[in-house]
Design a protein around this nucleic acid. Structure first.
Length: 121
DNA sequence: TATTTGACTGTTA
DNA sequence: TTAACAGCCAAAT
């Protein structure tokens, strides 16, 4: 066993992704930010692609809740991952239209809780 | 060691 | 709204 070691940054990213609540999504930059790695959105994508098949349960890291800043899924339409991600999201009541998601409604906003209380209902 | 490559992002046209 | 570009940075080659 030589380089089976996992980059600590990846662990950090995975743990952050785990915090995304069901029915919500987050963008790569947001995850990078929350993981303490500002400006490293691309690293997030790379980290998600390196989630070990074993050791980390698949469902433990909801990669499908991570999309790009444009509110779109970062996969080609013909990519099997694209369909899979779309379905997982829709199963969680997240509306996915043509690979796009309404961020205003579905983006996870950790600090929004307090803000919501300032709004009248 | 240098170059290429991404599950990205913000700006500009 | 979409498309092209440049900036970005760690990992792979």
């Amino acid at each position: 066993m030589t380089s089976q070691e996992i980059n600590p940054k990846y662990i950090q990213i995975w743990e952050t992704v785990q915090k995304i609540p069901e029915g919500k999504v987050a963008c790569y930059g947001q995850i990078a930010d929350l993981a303490g790695l500002p400006g490293k959105a691309r690293l997030v994508g790379k980290a998600l692609g390196k989630v070990p098949k074993s050791g980390w349960q698949k469902k433990a890291v909801p990669w499908y809740r991570v999309i790009n800043a444009q509110g779109k899924i970062s996969f080609s339409f013909d990519n099997s991952h694209f369909k899979k991600q779309t379905q997982f999201l829709q199963d969680e009541q997240v509306a996915v239209i043509a690979g796009k998601i309404n961020l205003v409604e579905f983006q996870w906003q950790p600090n929004m809780t307090e803000l919501l209380f300032t709004l009248k209902y």
